[in-house]
Structure formats: C-alpha cells, structure tokens
Design a protein around this nucleic acid. Structure first.
Lengths: 150, 150
DNA sequence: TTGCAGGTTGGACCGTGGTCCAGGGTCAAG
DNA sequence: CTTGACCCTGGACCACGGTCCAACCTGCAA
C-alpha cells in the first residue's frame, strides 16, 4: 500500500533495478508515472505484476509467455481456454525435456557403471562410446532439433 | 582415408562450414594444414574428432567439456577416473534438471486439470495461482540459482 | 554546503553455440 | 576466358534474460 521508487520495488520483489527497467522496455511492465524529477513511481499493482512474472518464470514460462498471460488476465473477453492452451503446451514441453534428460541420464549411468576408474583414460568406456562410429546412434536428424532444448 | 576440404568435412560430419571454423577458433579442433592457396586440409582424425564432439553434445556435454574429454583421450597419463568425474557431474546435473522439470510439470498438470476452460480468463486457476501471494511458495533463494538451468 | 545514496539515460556486455555477411581469392569445367 | 562453386578473413548478429557502465541529476542529512 503506497508508492515505491524503483529501488524499493526492486527490493520488495527481490529483483534488480535493471531488471525492472528491462521489463518495462520489454513491455512486461507499463511505463510508470514519474516524479517531477523523472523518478519512476510504482504502486502495489506493479509489485503484484512483478510477483506474477516471477512465479511464471519459476514454472518455466518465458518472459514473452508471461506477457501473454498478463494480457489474458487483464482482458475481459478472454476465456480460461486461452490460458489452458499455453499451459498445455508448456506441459508437453516439460514432458519431452524430461524424456530426453532421463534418456541421457540413463546412458551416462550405464557408462559410468562400466568405468573401472584405474585404467588409462583412452580405455574408458565413456570415451570409447563417444569415439565410436555414429552410424548406429539413431535418427540424427530428429535429435538435431532438440539439441538446443536440453 | 584421404583429405577433405572444409566443405567435404562439413558434409561428412553433418555440420556447417562455419561450425568447423568456430570449433577451430574455440580450440576444439587443431589448426589444420593448408594448401598453397590457404585452404584448410583435413584428415580422418578430424572427422573422428567432430563425431566425438557431436556425440558428446547429444549427451549434454558443453563444448568446453567436450574439449576436456578430448584432452583426456589424447593424454597418456590421464586415467579413466578423470572422465568418470566429469560424467558423474553430468549425471547429477541431469538428475536435478529432471527433478525440477518433473515438479513443474506436476504443478502445471494439476492446475490444468482444475481449469474449466469456459470461464473468464481472470478466473482461471492457473492465473489465480500465478497472481497469488508468493509467501508460501518456498525457498525463493534456493530456486533462484536454478532458474537459469531449466 | 557538501557528501552520498539514490535516481536517469543509452548503450555495451555476458554465456552458449553457432550463423551470416561482405569483400576478396582459387580452381575446374565448358 | 568466363562462370560458378568453393575457399579465405574479420566481424556482426541471433536468442534469452538480464547485468553493468559512464555520465549525469536529485533529495536528504550532517
């Protein structure tokens, strides 16, 4: 309840001042009122908005998606279905990342288990695996896309 | 068997020419011999090296880690234990990412299930969750570090 | 009045793994 | 001899989510 200068808002929300200005530039926070000297003045709604964004970030939403969610929240014509759509997409993204990471983890676990430790590095099954012909490791083209998304 | 120009090596390895030059700059590939005209000339060992790097990338290793693994492979004093150490670190990284992503996925699934779809967006339980006071959502400081690692 | 903490701006920079471009040189085929 | 495909270099640019900087201005306390 009340108005904050940028440093106060930053402290309240647990982010940096620069982050707040960055969010403003990115269209996540509205341009705030200013004092005569040009200082930004914020209110409780801005703190709520920042907290919303932080919660969304923790759930894996990008800033752009957070922006969309905030827009939906403010809309009086949008329905929950639009929010659900974004959420379902995020769920399947999380699912495929979990699948891919679990797969990697399993391969690494197997290799680590086989590794005796006290042999020369060049005999290490992990390096042998990495040096092996790639012909069998299947469907390169498919995986290529998901390399960025690990 | 044979020597390649950069385009041939790129095609054989399934990467771009620029990627090969980038790897050279980054110390992942040795500076190759050149023709009189300055063209880079590669051999089978370079193709093997590129394939090694690609395999390592698919297992989630960074280029820097790939470089370390290649160095260990080439060393005649290093033991497999050094490779194992890198691998174990990668495994626990994968494990914590899987935990985090699974947690997110579960929260989103729950919220999505509660969402009726045909209500105004602002009544959507997903948005309600994001707008809720953050006080309960625990241990902010701890999570903060892992935000980048999603 | 002076000092210092805070505010302002525009713009550069970070990591990661590339990708693209301009402006040139080279090489083999037709 | 020209055309086109390939090669060279140095440097800019991409996403993403910030972070930091210089150079300046403001507001409050001692």
């Amino acid at each position: 309840m009340g108005t904050f200068k940028i440093g106060e808002l930053a402290a309240a929300a647990g982010v940096g001042r620069d982050t707040i200005r960055y969010y403003e530039r990115s269209g996540l926070l509205p341009a705030p009122d200013r004092t005569a000297a040009g200082y930004r003045l914020y209110g409780d709604a801005d703190l709520d908005r920042l907290n919303f964004i932080r919660s969304a970030q923790e759930l894996g939403f990008t800033l752009e998606q957070s922006r969309q969610l905030l827009t939906l929240q403010a809309s009086d014509t949008a329905t929950a279905a639009a929010v659900l759509e974004i959420t379902l997409a995020k769920i399947s993204e999380a699912e495929s990342r979990v699948r891919r990471l679990s797969h990697i983890r399993d391969i690494l676990r197997e290799l680590a288990e086989e590794c005796p430790g006290e042999v020369p590095a060049s005999d290490c099954p992990i390096l042998v695996y990495l040096a092996a012909k790639r012909s069998s490791r299947r469907d390169e083209a498919i995986k290529e896309k998901s390399l960025r998304e690990q």
